[in-house]
């Protein structure tokens, strides 16, 4: 109980390029490093795919915050994932135009094709992952291509007028 002062950061391998990128982002907030918490978390999620407990602690140490102050941000935004997505992460637009163009059916067929069970999904765990860990899927808000629905993204690739789920997945096999 004597040593309450500092917490230790568990092993988290941050490539030097990532750390440089993060350090650079922090310089955008000269008044208070605390304000850099969102950009830092985005960078970490982009690299690791999700924000682990170690990433929360690493961020806290980086920004001179207590880990709990980072965790409250992570849990506030459903956009931050607290567990790993699949190798290919699919985001299906569910906003009005796409919904009317069949995005809910698309979601079902993608799940079927990728063997994903979405029954456990909720507001705070929006992602479902396939058994083999290869694919994960979630609904996204408007992806800004309302005339070409239903649309979805696989990692950073954009797909319009998606009709054949199996064909789409066929592009992401390895």
């Amino acid at each position: 109980m004597i040593l309450k002062a500092n917490f230790s950061v568990m092993a988290l391998e941050i490539p030097s390029t990532l750390e440089q990128e993060i350090d650079e982002r922090i310089t955008h907030y000269p008044v208070s490093k605390r304000s850099a918490v969102l950009p830092v978390l985005h960078a970490l999620q982009h690299h690791f795919g999700y924000i682990s407990e170690e990433a929360v602690e690493w961020t806290a140490k980086k920004l001179d915050l207590l880990p709990i102050k980072v965790l409250e941000v992570v849990t506030f935004y459903p956009g931050f994932r607290q567990y790993a997505p699949g190798k290919y992460h699919i985001r299906v637009c569910r906003t009005l135009s796409c919904a009317m163009a069949g995005s809910f059916d698309l979601m079902d067929s993608l799940c079927q094709a990728a063997k994903i069970d979405r029954s456990g999904v909720n507001h705070h765990h929006p992602i479902a992952v396939s058994e083999d860990g290869k694919y994960s899927i979630e609904f996204a808000e408007c992806l800004a291509s309302c005339g070409t629905g239903p649309v979805c993204m696989v990692n950073d690739d954009f797909h319009e007028k998606v009709e054949d789920a199996a064909a789409l997945l066929g592009q992401y096999r390895d």
Partner: peptide, 17 residues
């Protein structure tokens, strides 16, 4: 030590991590 975890209906008080 205390914080609010999550938001909306899921919001709850947590202790530590």
């Amino acid at each position: 030590v205390l914080s609010m975890h999550g938001r909306g209906f899921n919001a709850r008080i947590i202790k530590g991590l």
